[in-house]
Design a protein around this nucleic acid. Structure first.
Lengths: 222, 222
DNA sequence: TAGATTGTTAATCGATTAACAATC
DNA sequence: TAGATTGTTAATCGATTAACAATC
């Protein structure tokens, strides 16, 4: 492994599997999201202040986060969108391809499956399941069709699924979580309101669009 | 105004419009969400450790957050679910009724409109709009029908809309935001990927289910 | 009593912010 | 050069964590 002296901060990242902190990873992801959109809008450069306006993250914090990994900006100009995009992708290791299975072909499942945000960032939704036989075979998004729930185990193995996303009704969520754990999946994304019980080696992340809205409203309305 | 000595922390909250910090408000909302679900599951009490397991917030942090407003727990037992629910609701002032207008009757719009989480917390989606004339009049959720987009101004006035939620395609979001601002709405929730330009007195909160997933995956996968 | 869990302290770490020299 | 914006320092604030007496 070799690296330039001026990227001393990046050493931190590489050193014996040392992870980014949750906070830094979250912020870098948000910069990535804004940069991706800025690029689509044809922007060449962007300043830390503009990133701050869009993310509500303090501009000093942004410059600090970035300068920890190298000198990516030009004083008086800002950051080059393309170059910053590729730097952050490198830091977040988004080059790897990770496969996702989605459960529930209802409104939320369709909304998630149709989003182009995964393709934008190197993730792929490779399967969508539903227990309703009438939905099996329905086309979803560009390239998927709804599969029968019983295929879960086989698909997890064959497609190397690392994440299961639950967009099912609250009272169905625990059963799906159990089956995913049984199939060897260690990361579960829960968009239902269920409080899931899983073994300690499995990580559950719960959030839902409506809950996000609520949380922010509490703040803005007071 | 009168209050018990033992609730000294709450004074902080009442004192001349002093706000909760963003962090505290966010965490209290998450406790509320877990408590609501725990209550539905028939639980009577819950410990700070259980809240920590479900929210991934440190249990000491949780006890600290709560003890700032009063002594809500019983040592050796935990917190009474009902009583903690009502205390947090009081702190977050969720008694008030706030009306929301939703834009976009696609998959995400329908998913949000059908969620019962708003009703659970004193918010109401009172209108859903779409520019597609074929969707106008369609029933959504329990009590709504899709309204024509041109009714926006009138509905904002008549229904006292305080929040506009954008579940529209990215390239349509800015136009809706402009119209909402023109109608006097000051809080916009953006579930599209668009980077919205609004006047300084308007707050935009951008998030989308797929982006949330991305952000957390970066962390869990490394 | 014995076991469990709160409420609280103290120590540490990371986030936030203002300020400003460096420099494009 | 003049204006803008980065990279970085220093000071402050809030979050995190361990530890433990109080007490249910």
């Amino acid at each position: 492994m070799s690296f330039n002296e001026s990227y001393a901060g990046a050493v931190e990242l590489e050193r014996d599997g040392e992870r980014l902190s949750l906070g830094v990873a979250a912020r870098l992801s948000r910069y990535l999201q804004v940069l991706t959109q800025a690029k689509k809008m044809g922007r060449d450069t962007i300043s830390s202040q503009e990133l701050a306006d869009y993310t509500h993250i303090n501009s000093t914090q942004i410059r600090r986060d970035l300068s920890g990994f190298g000198k990516f900006g030009k004083r008086g100009v800002g950051y080059n969108v393309d170059s910053l995009l590729s730097q952050i992708r490198k830091i977040l290791r988004t080059s790897g391809q990770h496969n996702i299975a989605l459960f529930g072909a209802g409104h939320l499942g369709k909304a998630i499956a149709s989003s182009d945000i995964f393709a934008d960032h190197g993730f792929r939704v490779v399967a969508i399941f539903d227990t309703d036989p009438r939905k099996v075979g329905d086309p979803i998004g560009n390239s998927l069709t709804v599969r029968p729930y019983d295929d879960l185990g086989a698909v997890v193995d064959e497609e190397e699924i690392v994440v299961g996303v639950l967009a099912v009704p609250t009272d169905a969520a625990q059963a799906v979580a159990d089956d995913l754990v049984g199939a060897g999946v260690r990361i579960i994304f829960n968009y239902s309101e269920a409080l899931l019980q899983v073994p300690p080696e499995v990580t559950v992340h719960t959030s839902s669009p409506a809950v996000d809205l609520l949380y922010a409203l509490y703040f803005y309305l007071t």
